[in-house]
Write a protein that binds this DNA or RNA. Structure first.
Length: 319
DNA sequence: GCATGTCAAGTTGTG
DNA sequence: CACAACTTGACATGC
């Protein structure tokens, strides 16, 4: 294992802003593996588990490499791929971790990751995908969501992941009713999931003005995606939303988590939603300057985008 | 090798 | 009404 040297390039080791990378790498040779239920289905159970076990080990090894790189670069947060353990909760080919043939090695890898994360103050998060809808009126959808979130919670505990972030989901023509269903379903989650769960504003239905009160009622933090807020504005200014966002996390004694990205086709385009390769420093919200927060950067150029924004913003005294 | 269609799952808006 | 977009490609198949 390489010796970690922080800071690189003579820059200060920590700004008050902690920047985060999402899931993947553009240039670094760090790749995650996957498999599909269809590919597994024809195999005997034993072979399915062998294959899954190998993929899990590969992915954990890649996480270790990713974390070492991030620490070297002064990048303080990392969003893990949600299918790190592929098909974990899938009804037909899903599995309990204890069933994997190499489970001892896997636990050992997890422990090493958790230890490294703690040693280097690297903040880990998970962002289970769009199929997880606690506000759905369909019991089956909610049941699938609960099952998947519990798998994510198990993973989070093993790896030292602090945040499991999801969206509220669909509106079904009545946002208040949908948010009520989410509140009803929330207590059905285990403590290990509830203690990590956060809700994020999206760009089609739920704005910060919707999600902030919901989070307050549930006693969980709000992840502020400022790009979504710009795509789907509400009565709240960025300043106001930022104040409430920070207050919520501070009340819980935790460091605020936000998301930032730039529009691929510019703000004037008809569709500002798709993410650009890099972050335009002008898109960094003024009210966020100087705050002790974590900002995940959603940019196609991945680690290159994080490094570029950090170099562009660091020299300024505001950081 | 390389190109291409497919992958568990939900919901919404667009063409 | 089919399909892309969403945090994001990688896998599996066929040539």
């Amino acid at each position: 294992m390489q010796e970690i040297t922080v800071p690189p390039n003579g820059r200060p080791s920590r700004s008050t802003i902690r920047f985060g990378l999402c899931c993947l790498f553009a240039a670094q040779p760090i790749k995650f593996r996957q498999t599909t239920a269809q590919a597994l289905a024809p195999l005997p159970r034993e072979q399915q588990l062998e294959r899954l076990s190998a993929i899990c080990q590969h992915n954990l090894q890649q996480v270790s490499q990713a974390m070492r790189y991030l620490v070297e670069q002064g990048i303080g947060a990392f969003r893990l791929m949600s299918p790190l353990f592929p098909r974990h909760s899938q009804p037909q080919v899903g599995y309990a971790l204890a069933d994997l043939p190499e489970i001892e090695a896997i636990y050992h890898q997890c422990q090493a990751i958790r230890h490294f994360q703690g040693q280097h103050d690297l903040r880990l998060s998970l962002h289970p995908d769009q199929f997880n809808v606690l506000a759905s009126p369909h019991p089956q959808v909610v049941a699938n969501t609960l099952r998947e979130l519990e798998c994510q919670g198990e993973l989070a505990e093993l790896l030292g992941v602090e945040v499991i972030n999801i969206h509220v989901g669909g509106a079904y023509g009545d946002k208040q009713a949908a948010m009520g269903r989410l509140q009803t379903n929330f207590p059905r989650l285990s403590t290990r999931v509830r203690s990590r769960l956060t809700l994020e504003n999206d760009d089609v239905s739920y704005t910060p003005a919707d999600v902030l009160p919901l989070c307050r009622q549930l006693g969980i933090p709000f992840v502020y995606d400022v790009h979504h807020h710009r795509c789907l504005p509400d009565g709240l200014s960025c300043e106001r939303a930022t104040e409430e966002w920070l207050a919520l996390w501070q009340a819980l004694g935790r460091e605020p988590y936000g998301h930032l990205s730039s529009p691929k086709h510019g703000w004037a385009s008809a569709k500002p939603r798709p993410h650009a390769d890099y972050i335009d420093p002008a898109d960094f919200p003024d009210p966020w300057r100087g705050q002790a927060i974590t900002v995940d950067l959603e940019a196609k150029a991945k680690e290159l985008a994080v490094r570029r924004l950090m170099t562009e913003l660091m020299p300024q005294s505001a950081f």
